[in-house]
Write a protein that binds this DNA or RNA. Sequence first.
DNA 1: CCTACCGATCGGTAGG
DNA 2: CCTACCGATCGGTAGG
Lengths: 212, 212
Amino acid sequence: MVEQTKERRSRRSDGEQTYAAILEAAVRLASVEGLSALTIGRLAQDVGVSKSGLYAHFGSIRQLQLDVIDAARDIFGREVFAPGLEAEPGLAQLEALCAAYLSYIERWVFPGGCFFAGMLAEFDARSGVPHDAVSEDQREWVNLLEGIAREAQQRGELRDGIDLAQLVFDVTAPVQLANYYYVLYRDGVVLDQARASIRTAIAAAKPNGVKP
Amino acid sequence: MVEQTKERRSRRSDGEQTYAAILEAAVRLASVEGLSALTIGRLAQDVGVSKSGLYAHFGSIRQLQLDVIDAARDIFGREVFAPGLEAEPGLAQLEALCAAYLSYIERWVFPGGCFFAGMLAEFDARSGVPHDAVSEDQREWVNLLEGIAREAQQRGELRDGIDLAQLVFDVTAPVQLANYYYVLYRDGVVLDQARASIRTAIAAAKPNGVKP
DNA sequence: CCTACCGATCGGTAGG
DNA sequence: CCTACCGATCGGTAGG
């Protein structure tokens, strides 16, 4: 009896399935127009439910925004962190993470480009919960990359006296700019420019690399 | 008589003065919260006029947005282009423009960081008039810098076979990321990282510089 | 999950 | 420049 009920419900619009469908639509909308442009009314119309239907799932627009951020984090983890971290720890992993990021941009995982690059620009100058979430997410990226750079250093893959934070900045800047310009112009040249920039920064960090 | 009338009007809220005050408030609001967050009602309350008072000046929210963009362009020209272009044509000018940009960020010319970096992220994925304006403004920046790099090349300041577009990308990426991170964390370290990044890129472009 | 509703605010207009 | 208004949409709630 119980199983039958479950089956019947999941064949239609099961609660979880609806929730996932709503979140996916919300993430896509927020990635293109910003989290601030995400309204209950528009989203309800997009998904084909009533406004109060959305309130049953999220309770408030703030909670919806938080759930959207969490959903985007899952996607980023799956599409960038996971493949990037499969590489050998050390410089190879730093390169792999940058490559995974550029691939994620190139494959239009989000229709508006990197969700978190969008959030960064949308909330950097404001205060509040989304600003703090952006702040944490950027710290997480930088801290992860600095940890990987430190691992590379301990493995002797870096020349003496290198500034790890500077190295992370030097690979983050090109991937970030590539994201905005790729979305704006939809021209892959900028991805190649970012790749060249990263190659140069990593080559310059190696012991036998050119010293600036 | 005419002069007296002019004087009396300018002592109060002259039309031009009101227009300028409205635009300044609008530019500041848009720089922090985005051009999409700029509403007639909020702006009217901020400035202390009625909504229809704003319509007398701008006619529509779209026109207000265009006027805001134009006002921001003037400020950018005065604060970045003008001081940057005072340097000697060639590599010195490329360096000076980047330095002027970072100074403009550091001095909080706009309370939300670089107005056009904000616009880039807000409208890169949308279509419409603001998107096209963003597109033109970014092209203008890149074209100006590429022209300066070409001038440097003709003066023999660059090594053979250098990719001018790549050089421009390599100095634009750090200033762009520095803007977002400086607004987010309000920590000048990121400005120094951008300066170091630019120094390296320009040094590597010189004939006697290190070749990657 | 739905319909039906709330006050507030949106862009914009009429008339002065 | 103002008051007074328009229909549409906002986030959210009541009651089912």
